[in-house]
């Protein structure tokens, strides 16, 4: 081992001595103990490192940060039924309930647009501030990457008119175990525009390919269509003609 090798290794030796027992450093430390020039460098290096480490570690976190994390964490934590002690009991209950409700469930899926209703309900919570985004970014590509990384549904390529809008954030919600992704945008006319997506497979009545179906509910203007493997819904408080104008650009090139 040369002094150059020892310098390279000892540069990763923590100034608080936490690596003193790491055999990777043993030879370099021994050399620093016997070579005067290397020892002088090492002493100087540790002095420098100790000073920087002390300065960095003296920076206080904002006073309110801890309480914010704890408050937010309580909201984000999964329900206590993740506790293994309850899992067996819950599994048994689920079996019984599944048998009892399978008929109702089938009818519900066939006769309702449940995922859209769930998306609207979640959207209302987001807009009112009762719920928070899972991720925030003005760049929708970042949000799509976040959704993919977290196993949430999203299309490969968003319609061009939506890619041009600045995004606010995204959230994943679940409807009967089916994930629904919601991305919120600043709309061109000032009102926000929201895109909800879920996998088309398994939906009893998926929206049609290429022909958006328009509707209104609770003051929301909605349009639903399918794009590849995804069922999509665009939602806004803006007037219907603005939604149609957005979709005229958004959907037409894809069909």
């Amino acid at each position: 081992m040369t002094n150059k090798d020892a310098i390279f290794l000892l540069g990763a030796f923590r100034p608080n001595g936490a690596d003193a027992n790491d055999p990777e450093f043993a030879e370099a430390l021994a050399r620093a103990g016997s070579d005067a020039e290397l020892k002088a460098w090492f002493d100087d290096q540790r002095g420098f490192d100790s000073a920087i480490a002390a300065r960095l570690q003296s920076i206080p976190a904002p006073a309110e940060l801890r309480s914010r994390i704890l408050t937010g964490g309580r909201v984000s934590r999964p329900a206590p039924w993740f506790n293994p002690r309850w899992l067996w009991a819950i599994a048994a209950m689920v079996m019984v309930l599944a048998v009892l409700t399978v008929g109702y469930e089938k009818g519900y899926r066939e006769n309702s647009r449940g995922w859209q209703d769930q998306a609207l309900a979640s959207l209302t919570e987001l807009v009112s501030g009762e719920a928070n985004f899972d991720a925030k970014s003005p760049n929708v590509a970042d949000l799509q990457q976040w959704l993919r990384a977290n196993g949430s549904p999203t299309v490969g390529a968003l319609p061009a008119s939506l890619r041009r809008l600045a995004s606010l954030g995204c959230k994943t919600v679940a409807w009967h175990g089916r994930p629904i992704s919601i991305i919120c945008f600043h709309g061109p006319g000032g009102e926000m525009v929201h895109l909800a997506m879920t996998e088309r497979a398994g939906l009893e009545n998926p929206p049609p390919d290429g022909h958006p179906v328009f509707g209104t509910k609770d003051g929301w203007q909605m349009a639903c269509w399918s794009q590849g493997e995804m069922a999509m819904m665009l939602i806004t408080r803006a007037p219907a003609d603005q939604l149609r104008a957005l979709l005229a650009v958004a959907v037409a090139p894809n069909f």
């Binding site: 150059k4 310098i7 460098w41 002493d43 420098f48 300065r55 960095l56 920076i59």
Partner: peptide
Amino acid sequence: TAELPEQTGSIADSIDGATAV
């Protein structure tokens, strides 16, 4: 660094946390 670098340990003693960051 191909050789023993300049010794500058005393520089760090004169700075504060904000300067270090």
